[in-house]
Design a binder for these strands. Structure first.
Length: 331
DNA sequence: ATGTGAG
DNA sequence: ACTCACATA
């Protein structure tokens, strides 16, 4: 924790980076130009890492990834406090349509473009063109408003009880953890992210390509008790779908992870994202590599060794000499 | 196989 | 950044 580069919060050129990121997203989502997208992001990153306040386009121009065009934009922003290009985008037909259509889960920038070309410009229009949507997108449209509502903690507690009792009735050897912001103690969450494992399912099983029906059995059970109302997708290890206990439908994800990788998985899926980044960076400092599956030592060559045995989240903190934080402290 | 999308 | 599930080719 000694030396570290400036995190976003104390980035002195914050405002420049913000508009560059906005332009980057516009290029990716509306113009579908990944190269321009990457160019804007690269510029934003080098500017964020630059220690001093930028006072002219000319000064910015010296930085890697900043060319003539971006330098001009920096000058315009310095002089007028805004960008005409960005203002225009706010009134741009395509941009508005893409923003509306991508509210539907399963519709990304590519599908939004396709729909726009057919004259479908908003989620409202979609109701007349359901034949253009796949199963995932139809569910997204059906529950559009519901999925944008936050889930109160008390409701997730009820859902957790129902999941636990039903899975337990199926087989008491399952382990169950609801991760995400709920586990971090938040008062409300965007969705419900459930991790399960079972002693019969280990990493050697999945390495050998041995499928397991452990997840499908769980999903089946939760459908039978009418907790799960829809399935978006269901594979051997990942379920994405919908559950309902109140009047409001909720996004529910369930993933089955190998028993020996369970603690690394709960650590990873509990987040927050910033906490994960910090922890993985610390792991590297200490000569380890950490991901959602395992913790491995890095040899002098930098090649990861065999996964270390992990029997709790705390083990991971201890190995990499990182002060333990309980889930509520990981925000 | 490749692209899309989600997380 | 990386992986899973899916829908196409």
């Amino acid at each position: 924790m000694s030396k570290r580069k400036a995190p976003a919060e104390d980035n002195i050129n914050h405002d420049f980076c913000d508009f560059l990121i906005e332009l980057a997203n516009y290029e990716k989502n509306v113009n579908r130009n990944i190269h321009k997208h990457n160019a804007y992001r690269k510029a934003a990153n080098t500017i964020a890492a630059y220690g001093k306040r930028i006072t002219s386009g000319e000064e910015a121009r010296k930085l890697e990834g900043v060319g003539k065009k971006i330098a001009e934009k920096i000058d315009e922003f310095i002089h007028t406090g805004k960008l005409r290009k960005l203002e225009n985008i706010k009134h741009d037909d395509t941009a508005i349509a893409v923003e509306s259509l991508t509210r539907v889960t399963g519709i990304g920038p590519a599908k939004a473009q396709e729909l726009f070309k057919l004259g479908i410009k908003s989620t409202k229009d979609l109701h007349n063109h359901k034949d253009k949507l796949n199963h995932h997108q139809l569910i997204g449209l059906k529950y559009l408003e519901d999925f944008e509502k936050k889930i109160p903690r008390a409701e997730i507690e009820l859902i957790e009880d129902k999941i636990r009792s039903n899975i337990n009735a199926l087989d008491p050897e399952y382990l169950i953890t609801i991760c995400g912001s709920y586990r971090r103690g938040k008062a409300e969450s965007g969705d419900i992210d459930v991790l399960i494992t079972h002693p019969n399912f280990t990493s050697s099983c999945s390495e050998k390509g041995l499928a397991s029906n452990l997840l499908k059995k769980v999903v089946n059970k939760l459908e039978n008790v009418s907790l799960i109302t829809d399935t978006i997708s269901l594979g051997d290890v990942k379920f994405m779908g919908v559950c309902k206990i109140s009047e409001i439908a909720r996004r529910l994800d369930i993933r089955l992870t190998p028993h020996d990788q369970y603690n690394c998985a709960t650590l990873y899926f509990t987040g927050s994202d910033m906490f994960n980044k910090e922890m993985r960076a610390h792991a590297i400092q200490e000569g380890f590599t950490l991901n959602e599956y395992c913790l491995r030592p890095l040899g002098s060559t930098g090649i990861p060794g065999e996964p270390l045995p992990v029997s709790s989240e705390r083990d991971v903190f201890d190995y990499i000499n990182f002060p333990y934080k309980d889930p509520c402290q990981r925000n």
